[in-house]
């Protein structure tokens, strides 16, 4: 008889629910998504779970495994031998059904970020050295695990004050583009709420694509905001166009 793994999966909707246990045979190299499929195929055909590419490309299957935000398709079950694997939907977003959370808020935020604005006509001349750091941001699959773990959004539910780590990465992508002519620093300092982040690096830890969100996106953006708003010399010369940055970081 092969080894079994015990999954405890949240079943329910916005009105409430509870975890239900399922037993699944363990095979070598199995990931959590494989086990969830087994449950769906043989024990609970009405289990709602988003998934698609099974290869950490599409960002569909974000959930919380034993309390940690992870992709179901990229989490190997051999890391959990002897444990019950608790699987719940992402907690920062409203639940729809079972493991399906309503992540649409993120796409509303995406609409607020101004698009790339070319500063010169194509073809561009750029050095690989200058685009390397942006290509790191291309790794983002928009699974929103960073948004899920961010305590500003999760514990303080400050979705009206902070765009969240995913969109700091997005804005860094444009801000660092050598041929972008836009200026998103005022937005970062105000509407996007960059100051709300107090660099606990939780987002970097959960990123399944290993993007160094805090070090490579958020901190450089904070430096730009500081340069523009807090540098005393600049402040002296700055026209009184925009008010000073507001918003305090919250303690996690």
């Amino acid at each position: 008889m092969s080894e079994e793994i015990v999954l405890s999966i949240f079943r329910g909707d916005a009105a409430g629910g509870q975890e239900v246990e399922y037993r699944v045979p363990l095979t070598p190299g199995m990931v959590v998504l494989d086990a969830v499929h087994q449950v769906q195929a043989h024990q609970a055909q009405d289990l709602a779970v988003r998934w698609n590419c099974k290869a950490a490309h599409c960002g569909s299957c974000g959930a919380e495994i034993n309390g940690h935000p992870k992709l179901l398709c990229k989490t190997r079950l051999d890391d959990y031998v002897g444990e019950t694997v608790h699987i719940r939907p992402m907690q920062t977003f409203p639940i729809i059904k079972d493991l399906v959370a309503d992540v649409s808020w993120n796409f509303e935020v995406a609409k607020k970020v101004p698009a790339f604005q070319p500063s010169v006509p194509v073809p561009f001349k750029m050095q690989q050295f200058d685009v390397d750091r942006i290509q790191e941001f291309h790794h983002c699959i928009e699974c929103f695990l960073c948004q899920d773990v961010c305590h500003v959004l999760r514990d303080h539910n400050a979705k009206d004050q902070y765009f969240g780590p995913r969109f700091m990465v997005k804005m860094a992508e444009f801000e660092m583009h050598p041929r972008d002519g836009g200026d998103r620093v005022p937005m970062l300092a105000h509407e996007a709420g960059l100051n709300m982040c107090n660099v606990t690096k939780c987002c970097t830890e959960v990123c399944p694509q290993h993007i160094r969100i805090t070090d490579n996106a958020i901190i450089p953006l904070k430096e730009r905001v500081a340069d523009q708003y807090w540098d005393p010399l600049r402040a002296l010369f700055r026209k009184k166009k925009a008010p000073a940055a507001t918003g305090q970081s919250v303690q996690g």
Binding site: A115, F116, P118, P121, V122, P123, F124, K125, M126, Q127, Q128, V131, I134, Q135, H138, F174, H177, D180
Partner: peptide, 20 residues
């Protein structure tokens, strides 16, 4: 390719700065 570059796609580069 140039339309996409104009809209913001970052292609990898050659040493002389052109698209690799």
């Amino acid at each position: 390719v140039y339309e996409m570059e104009h809209w913001g796609t970052i292609f990898s580069r050659r040493p002389d700065g052109r698209i690799a």
